[in-house]
Structure formats: structure tokens, C-alpha cells
Design a protein around this nucleic acid. Structure first.
Lengths: 181, 181
DNA sequence: AATATTATTGAACAAAGTGTTCAGTATTAA
DNA sequence: TTAATACTGAACACTTTGTTCAATAATATT
């Protein structure tokens, strides 16, 4: 990819992230983004079809290393942690220590699109590790319902934790989560 | 209130509800609403400041009888049910039998505003009846967190039920809910 | 270093939506 | 019947969106 393209992409991403932490997703206009990024209008539209696509590509940029990491070395993908699957504890830690972006996006308003993306990824994680939680499932309820429940509970827990300023350690909040389910 | 006002209010509400079941909240324009309602543009704006206010007033219109009913007779407010507080079972029943509007609104896209309203009302209900559920709370977790959790779980359960076409009876889905918490 | 390719620019553009205004008309309440 | 009030519809300024295009700049290719 042309160096110019990489440059403008990054300028746009940075401007967008900055705006996301200042105002609702719906309230952000393409005009504001390009003004802050110092980029022509036509340039923006040659990179991204719409604002929604910008968000989508930003998610891939920011989180694909987390969710899609193969076991190929020294990245910090979710799958490369303490052998036996404290994936979710790892995620709490990751959010606390590195990932201000997840914090911003998960608590920003009018951002159904991101929540949908994030929930989709987390659902995949739980699906792959469903057996680790299957013993907690009451026998009577359907598995699809259970999957939806633990995923939602995880995300709500994470959101609550972020919104109340992350006063607990990742370990404590992870135990809260385990006690809920 | 002038009969003319009541008439246009109802025309607008009906048009809005119809549109909500056909497209995303964000995609609905004032132009469409007034065209469908057969009402002048100026009239719309003399009734409602913005589309968001329209939604807000629609919620009050549709659900205040549910959530704010005092014990004053033959309404079907949430508080006027089987003495000992199966409020939530009652809500499941209500949604299944009478309330196509909650169904539409709770599963419509780009409708954070409604979900926020609905969650607020349900949170109030749980807060007033927290003692009924307090014995299910693990000792270690904070009460505010617990309140948020059972509220979210209730709403997610309701949403899942609606989205999967309400195949279970209200009693069964209510038991699912109880087993989750 | 010269050239071909590709990205960016800025300005202009149509289209769609928002929210306001106002004079004229119709409906309702008194 | 009259006075008050609600509705109309058309026009308005304004904002935002997404597109187009010729000129210019940066990069890749040889």
C-alpha cells in the first residue's frame, strides 16, 4: 500500500477516535473528521464508503490482532494466553492496561454498530470455549439462549466496570463475572 | 386538549409506529412521517421538537399506564397483579398478549433511546423489589452491580424471546430467567 | 533522472434532510 | 356568533451527504 494512503488512513483514524471520545457517534460528521485530519473531502470518500464503513475498518485495525491472532509468536492475541483458557480474564486485563480504545468505543453513545461487532467477536470466543462453562448451565435452558446470556453478561460486566472507573482489579471483576453465571 | 390536537397526535404516532416496524429508527425522516400521517410539516414541529422527542412522548403514551399505574382500579399496570409480585412474569405475559409495540420497539435497530427508556423503567421495578431477589445475589458482589445485572438479564431474555418468535410460554421463559439469576 | 502511475486537493455540485416562518384557512370552544 | 386556536403549504436558510473533475503532488518504475 502506497505510503500516502497509509498516512491519510492513519490521520483519519486518529481524528475519528479523538472525536469519538468527545461526542456521540451520530453527532460526528464527515466534515469534522476531514477538518481534524486535514484531509480533502474527496480523499475521505476514496478511502471509506461511509462513516459506518470507517468504523468497521477501524475495528478491524484495532482489534483483529486481539481476536484473530493465530498462535504464531509474540503478539498479544486472546488465544495466546496462559494455556488453559483464562481468555476472559486476559481480556479484562488487556482492557485495563492497553486498550483505551475499547473503553471509549464500548461506552460511547449511538454506537450500536460497535457493540454489535464486539458482541459478535466475544460470542465467537465463548462458542469455542463453551465446554468450559457448560457445567454452569442449568439443564433446562436451551444452549443458544445460554450462549447469548453469558456473552451479554460478560459485555455488561465489562461495560459496568469501565463506566464505574475500573475500581476493581481485573481478577476481582473476573470473579464477579464467574459468580454471576 | 383540543380535539384537533389529539387527532394529529394520534395520526403522527400511528404513522411513526408503522414506520418503526418497517425501517431503522435513524432511517425514518420527518418527511416520511408527515406524509404518512397526512399532516403539515409545520404541524409536526408545533407538536414535537424533534424525532427523539416524538419517540419519548410515544413511550409515555404507550407505557406509562404499565409502569406508572397507581393501584386505582381496573387498569393493567404492572403493580396490579397477583399480590405477591410476579411483576416480571406479568410483563412477559403482557408482551405476548397485548403489546406488539414493545416487541417492535425492543427489536428495532438504532433505537438506543428506547432501550434506555425501557431499561430505566425496568430498573425502577427491580429496585423496588430488590429484596425478592437479594437471596440470589452472591455475597461478594456490590449491590449496584447486581441491580444492573438482573435488569440487563431480564431485558436480554425478553429480547431473545421476542427475536426467536416467542416459542415458549411466558411461564417457561420466566423460569428461564429465574434460573439464570 | 526521467517518466508513468497513482493519490490528494479543493472547489463545485445536486440531492436530501432539518427546523423555521408566515399569511391564509378551517375548526373548535365560549 | 365570535374569539381563540390549530392546521396548511409553501417558501426559506442551513447543514450534511456523496460525487465529479481538472490540477497538482507524491511515489513507483525503468
Amino acid at each position: 500500500m502506497d505510503r500516502r494512503q497509509r498516512k491519510t488512513r492513519e490521520l483519519i483514524f486518529n481524528a475519528f477516535i479523538l472525536l469519538l471520545s468527545k461526542k456521540h457517534y451520530n453527532a460526528i460528521t464527515v466534515g469534522e473528521i476531514i477538518e481534524l485530519a486535514n484531509v480533502g473531502r474527496a480523499t475521505f470518500y476514496s478511502h471509506f464508503e461511509t462513516k459506518d464503513f470507517l468504523l468497521k475498518e477501524l475495528c478491524i485495525e484495532l482489534f483483529s490482532h486481539l481476536f484473530n491472532a493465530e498462535n504464531d509468536g509474540d503478539n498479544d492475541g486472546i488465544f495466546n494466553c496462559d494455556i488453559h483458557g483464562n481468555v476472559f480474564l486476559h481480556l479484562f486485563k488487556h482492557v485495563k492496561e492497553n486498550d483505551n480504545n475499547i473503553r471509549k468505543l464500548l461506552t460511547s453513545k449511538n454506537n450500536e454498530l460497535f457493540v454489535e461487532y464486539f458482541k459478535g467477536e466475544v460470542t465467537k470466543l465463548f462458542k469455542e470455549r463453551l465446554l468450559d462453562f457448560i457445567d454452569k448451565k442449568p439443564a433446562s435452558i436451551p444452549q443458544e439462549f445460554w450462549l447469548n446470556h453469558i456473552t451479554s453478561t460478560f459485555i455488561e460486566t465489562l461495560r459496568w466496570w469501565i463506566e464505574t472507573k475500573m475500581k476493581q482489579t481485573p481478577e476481582v471483576i473476573y470473579n464477579y463475572f464467574l459468580e454471576l453465571i
